[in-house]
Design a binder for these strands. Structure first.
Lengths: 350, 350
DNA sequence: GTGAAAGCGCTAACAA
DNA sequence: TTGTTAGCGCTTTCAC
């Protein structure tokens, strides 16, 4: 058997204290950057830490502290399957983590409403909360609110849609440009040699994720499938009723639509439309998010492929990152990279 | 803010001891099913545990015990990128887990050799090791060896290829039948209306994963693409040289091969063949496992899609499951389900 | 500025 | 068969 690493025992603060010739309390003060230690002592301790390759045992530290992590998710308040699934994952993980000193909760704020989001962020009790995960639009007011959190030492991650201009510590979600590209490639390949128009159904161009997907989609269509004519986006604001109303007109004006990219939370409206109007031949459809509805559509042959992101992974990843940041511990990038899942009816989970 | 769960403090063994009117030591004995406790006392304690909804704090327990988990991976010894990647993941995770009381190591045994595998399993020191993850063929001798491990209280998981007839605790890997189906659907859709022959390149029909993929592939081809003629499998034994030698003859005999399903570790041989013979038009190719070579083939247009499983996820999942089993703790099924990843050049990670 | 000592939840001698 | 006690690695009073 090949031992990958020597089974050397890890050094503890006792070792540090001994080597640095100070007491445990002083080591602890240095470790936690607490004030009231002479500069030379700090140096001595840090030297011992470096020499011994000390790494703090977080479990023991948390035990001693009685520490409880308090993380809040801020989500859009509109109802769709993806959001429902995120909520379920948060609730489930919360009960799963009850015995791991971690409490999860969530707030809902009006979708596509930057001011409401900023207000919700500002309403966070910075003394109670250790981390915040935000799923919402990127605007100056939101950026300011994030800055406020960071100033109070709270770790912040953006979720699903990034807020890169803010001081958020990390982004948890897929590369949406790449997701759009993937959708484009799939739609193009599935259409083969056919020529015609492509309809892109989106939510709101205010949402960074929606915008990026459209960008990536257009890139690939322009490059690899110049014979396909991509129409301007239909903004459905993730509202099934609105989408159901908008679709008939659009498709009447463009009878040669042979492909549809449902890039946001518009699947319900789209499927209702299909149900009612039964277009023949049905356009090739690539949609987003694997949910009960889209699964059924895949099985029933209404959708051809679904691009997705694992909501469980999103939530677990956000929590792991917030915990690591709270502990000033490193994160495993590879584990936290959210995959762009491609589902056909044959590889759906379960 | 919506609190999902009341922030009630979790009960500790002190609470149990108080309620059951016994000492801490007795509670500990009951919790760990140690002998020497009167039946009535056991009942009292268990009652208190149930009443208070006690859940053991594993971190504290491990701290007290000085417990170190020792897990061994048994892998085939042939060299290919997928195995290299698994090894890397094991080594990386091992250093990452050094401070979490977990030691990982691996052994290599001759591929497709059940006796060698059984011998390697039997060579495991059952007093030193807490869990074993096995990637290898399923035969009676292997089953016996697994039974031997289980008899000694060691947790066993099968990795990548299942050993369902054995007493292994869990299987960590994809549903290979579904993976084969996915490959079939993708290949069929990408070929569109074209007619011709399909070549399936496999490793060994002794390997359950290879067999299952072929099964799933045939199901879909027969059902959805009856115009495509799937040839008998070419068994390459995951050996690049052998594959490179076999391919020219097969393709000469079947000049109308328009699609290839590279279902095992034969990508290197296949790509070498492409390099040398430059077939025009190149057949549509669906291959397995995202590796440096297959990534390059996707980007360069040699492969059209890659079905994959995340090697990091495989290893992390195996470790989490072995740890949970060792602690007699529940596992989160959803988190441990290995996805059948579909990669086009547009959605490859990085 | 620094140290001694108690304690987090649990386990493991050792007594009784 | 049961209880007492020390201790795992770390934090946190409270003295000095």
């Amino acid at each position: 058997m090949k031992q990958i690493d020597p089974p050397r025992l890890n050094p503890t603060i006792n070792d540090i204290a001994r080597v640095a010739e100070v007491s445990l309390a002083t080591v602890d003060r240095v470790l936690n950057a607490r004030p009231g230690v002479r500069e030379t002592t700090v140096k001595k301790v840090n030297r011992a830490i470096a020499d011994l390759g000390y790494v703090r045992d977080t479990a023991a530290a948390n035990l001693a502290r009685g520490r409880v992590y308090n993380f809040v998710f801020i989500l859009p308040s509109n109802k769709n399957e993806f959001l429902t699934s995120l909520e379920t994952q948060i609730a489930d993980l919360n009960t799963g983590l009850r015995h791991e000193r971690t409490r999860l909760s969530f707030v809902r704020v009006a979708a596509f409403d930057p001011m409401a989001l900023a207000a919700a962020i500002n309403a966070i009790d910075t003394r109670q909360v250790d981390g915040v995960a935000i799923f919402g639009p990127e605007t100056p007011s939101v950026r300011d609110s994030v800055a406020h959190l960071k100033k109070n030492g709270i770790t912040v991650v953006s979720l699903v849609a990034d807020i890169p201009s803010s001081e958020r510590d990390d982004y948890v979600g897929v590369d949406n440009v790449a997701a759009g590209r993937t959708a484009g490639q799939l739609l193009g390949r599935f259409l083969g040699a056919r020529r015609g128009k492509i309809l892109v159904l989106t939510g709101s161009m205010l949402a960074r994720d929606h915008l990026e997907r459209r960008l990536g989609f257009d890139e690939v269509m322009g490059q690899d499938f110049p014979d396909l004519d991509v129409l301007a986006s239909l903004e459905g604001r993730d509202d099934p009723d609105l989408i159901e109303r908008l679709l008939p007109d659009t498709l009447r004006d463009n009878p040669d639509v042979i492909g549809i990219y449902s890039s946001a939370a518009g699947n319900e409206g789209l499927l209702r439309f299909f149900e009612k109007h039964q277009p023949v031949p049905r356009p090739v459809v690539v949609a987003h998010e694997l949910t009960p509805l889209s699964r059924q559509a895949l099985v029933g042959g209404m959708f051809d492929a679904v691009i997705s992101q694992d909501s469980g992974h999103l939530v677990r990843s956000a929590v792991r990152i917030m915990r690591a940041n709270s502990d000033r511990m490193p994160i495993n990038i590879a584990q936290e990279r959210i995959r762009i899942d491609v589902y056909l009816k044959e590889n759906m989970p379960q």
